[in-house]
Structures are given as structure tokens and as C-alpha cells.
Amino acid sequence: MPTDDAQRMIAGVQAGDAASIDTFVRAHIGMMISVSERILNDRGLAEDCAQESLIAAIGKIHSFQGKSGLRTWLHRIAVNCALMKVRARSPVSNVSMEELLPVFDERDCRIEAPWTSMATPEEVFEADSRRQAVQASIRALPDDFRLVLILRDIENLSTREVADALGITVSNVKVRLHRARAALKKLIEPVLRGAS
């Protein structure tokens, strides 16, 4: 949306104009559901979250000062809402992280099957089934690790921001992020090696 149109829409929402609120909701609800669904792994909960986030955003639109972009501001509200819902539910993953972490021998040398080829993103995503396999592997990670991976690598929060959002230390974020990436590598190896 062009800047002038966006500013007009924001001014309209701030003034309580029904047409502006309608435009505002329709322009952002898809993005809010997507962000929430990546964190929650659940479309129904993500729709609830988008609804609550948008109502909250409209309610405090007066506090939006334009320092960050509107999408960034809304993105943050959706992330926070989704994190609250994640914390409120029981863990859902059955994956054992220990089995997915790198393996070393008694001399601390890495045990890694030789790579003769490695699929490029273009090759991987030629087939929807492979894209879905990667997405399913991310969803399979335990919440503690998946959330750090999503927030840092996908939603582009800084390590400090992830630590604050999850209420853990920066060093804990780093450990979880590295383990999440290492475990994901193991999970998608068949795709990377071109075996599926």
C-alpha cells in the first residue's frame, strides 16, 4: 500500500472510521494469521490470535508512532499474542532432540556420512512434497527449540529480542538455536541428499 494511502488508513482507524477499519483489517489479517500459525502450528489458534491481535492493535493504534513500519508493529503484536498462547498449552512434539544432535567418536572427531551431493533450494522446492517435508520437519521440533528457530531465523528477531520474548537468557537462546538447526538438518537430510 502506498505510504499516503497507509497514512490515511491509519488516521482513519485512529478516528474510528468504519471504512478505514475494514480496510485495515482486510489488509493485515492474512499476515497476522501466517505469523501466528508459524509459531502456534495450529490454524484455529492462529485465527484466534490474529483476531485478538487486530482488536488489540486497533485499540492502541494511537500509540503507533510510525517509528517502525506498520507491518513490523503488527508483526510484533501477533508474535507476542502467539507466544502467550504457546506458553499456555502443553508441549506437542514427540521428537527426541538427543537423537538428532551431532555425533562424535571417542576422540571427539565428528561422525558424518560423506556428502556426495547436496540439493539446492531450487531443487528441493521444485516439488511441493519436499517443501511440505521441510515445513513438517520444522513443525516436528519441540516447542522450546522450534520457537527460537522461528523467531530468530524466520521472523528475524535479534538474539536479545528472542531472549526477552521467551524469558530466557541470551546464552540459552544461542544453545537452543544451534540445537534446533542441527536437529532440523538431521530431520531434512533425506531431502538434502536427494533421497526423497
Binding site: R26, I29, G30, M31, I33, S34, E37, R38, P102, C109, R110, I111, E112, P114, W115, M118, A119, P121, V124, F125, R131, V134, Q135, I138, L149, I150, D153, I154, R181, A182, L184, K185, I188, E189, V191, L192
Partner: peptide
């Protein structure tokens, strides 16, 4: 170390794939 070289390449490719798989997926369509 060949093993670590290949491991790191696969680790970085994994990061790339996860970004493409999720970030580049379009927002939920209206």
C-alpha cells in the same frame, strides 16, 4: 576436516531451506 566442512555446508543449507520454506510462503490469502 572434511566431515566438519560438509557438516557446516549442510547446516547452512538447512538454514537457507527453512527460511525459504516458511518465510517465502505467502501470507494467508484473503
Amino acid at each position: 576436516c572434511r566431515e566438519c566442512r560438509q557438516y557446516l555446508a549442510a547446516y547452512q543449507r538447512t538454514m537457507e531451506l527453512s527460511r525459504v520454506a516458511l518465510q517465502d510462503s505467502p501470507s494467508v490469502e484473503m
